[in-house]
Design a protein around this nucleic acid. Structure first.
Lengths: 179, 179
DNA sequence: AATCGATCGTTACAAACGAAACTATGCCGT
DNA sequence: ACGGCATAGTTTCGTTTGTAACGATCGATT
C-alpha cells in the first residue's frame, strides 16, 4: 500500500456524483416533477400528493384509500391527508362500504371529474413533450429500462453482495435516513 | 379479455399512472435512493443530504458551500444544515477564505475522508449492481436518455405549448406545490 | 358471543424541508 | 471614504412529511 500524503490537494475522486446513477435519477425525476407541477399547481391550486390521488381515482373509479396507496405508491397517511383535502374542496366524495365499515370508497364528484378532465390532458401533453426529445427507440428503451431498474432495486439486498469479512451485522436500531 | 365490470360507471381512464413518465421516474428514483440509503444510513448513521455533501467534498476537495449546492443540486439551506451536521461530527472542517470572508471552504477531515473512503465503494457497488440488469447498450442508452430528459425538462415552458384559446394567463400568485 | 389479533384509516407528535428574513461581508459608483 | 446594492451563508418560521399511537371494525378461535 502506498504511503498516504497528509494533505494532498486532491486525490482522484472515488465517485463522480454527476455520473452516479441514483443521483442522476433523482435529479431528473425532481426536475421533471417540478416542471409538471408548475403546469397544474399554479393553475388549479393542487399539490403533487393531491394530484396523484386525483389521478388514481380518475383512473380506477371507486377505490379505497388503501388501494390508492398501492397503485400510486403513497403512504397511507399521505393518501389520507390528500383525500381529506380533496374532499374538503368538494372534488372527492366518500361512499361507505357496508361490507367493511373500516374502509370507504372514494370517488370523484362532478367537480372532481371535471378537474381531472382538465389536468389529465395537460399532464399527458407534458409527458409527450418531454418524450419528444427521445428518438422512438430510446423512448421504448426507457420503458424497458425503468421496469428493469424498478424490479431490480426492489429485490436488492440491504447489504452488499460481497461479504465484507466478518459477519458483523449492521445494527438494526438506527434511523432510516428519510429525505 | 372479456369485459369485467369492476367499476360501474367509469369511462376509459384519461391517464394511466403506471405508464406516466413523470410518475415512473419518481418511483424508480425513490426506490433506488431508498435502497442505496439502506446500505449506508443504517451502518454509518448518515442521511441523504449529508451523503451528498460528503460525496461532493470528496469529489472536489476544498469547496465552498455554494459550489456544493451547484454541483449536487441542493438548496443552500440544505447544504448549510448538512455541512453543519458533518462538521459537528468531525467529518468536515472549515477553512476561512481570507480573500472573501463571507464564504468558507469545506474539506474532509481525516475521519471524514475515511468515511468517504468506505461509503463511496459501497455506493458504486450498489450502482453497478443496479446497472447489471441492463444490457450494455441499454446502460449506454440510459445515460443519453437521462441527459436528454434533464436538458429538456430544464428548458420546458411553465405553460403548455398549445395556446389554450384566449389569452387567459394563469394567475401567478398561487402556491408552488412543494413535495 | 366473548376475546384476541389483524387491518383500515385518522390523529398526534416530531423531524425535515423550503421561503424568506437576517447577518456579515464584498463590490461598485460617486 | 461613503452609501447603496449584491452575495454567502445561517437562522427563523410555517408547512410538509413520516413514525407511532390510536379508535373502529373485522375475522377467527374458543
Amino acid at each position: 500500500m502506498a504511503s498516504r500524503r497528509i494533505r494532498p490537494d486532491r486525490r482522484d475522486p472515488a465517485l463522480r456524483l454527476a455520473a452516479f446513477l441514483p443521483y442522476r435519477l433523482n435529479v431528473v425525476a425532481a426536475v421533471v416533477s417540478e416542471g409538471l407541477a408548475r403546469r397544474y399547481a399554479s393553475q388549479f391550486g393542487i399539490g403533487i400528493p393531491e394530484w396523484r390521488v386525483l389521478a388514481t381515482i380518475g383512473e380506477f373509479g371507486r377505490i379505497t384509500a388503501g388501494a390508492i396507496g398501492q397503485h400510486a405508491r403513497m403512504h397511507k397517511v399521505k393518501v389520507s391527508r390528500a383525500a381529506a383535502g380533496l374532499e374538503s374542496r368538494g372534488l372527492v366524495a366518500r361512499e361507505a362500504n357496508a361490507k367493511d365499515r373500516r374502509e370507504a370508497f372514494l370517488a370523484l364528484t362532478p367537480a372532481g371529474d371535471a378537474l381531472y378532465g382538465r389536468i389529465a390532458p395537460l399532464a399527458l401533453a407534458y409527458a409527450a413533450e418531454l418524450a419528444a426529445v427521445l428518438p422512438p427507440e430510446d423512448a421504448a428503451a426507457l420503458d424497458r429500462i425503468l421496469d428493469a431498474l424498478l424490479a431490480r432495486a426492489g429485490r436488492m439486498d440491504p447489504a452488499p453482495p460481497v461479504p465484507t469479512e466478518s459477519g458483523a451485522r449492521p445494527r438494526p436500531g438506527t434511523r432510516p435516513a428519510s429525505g
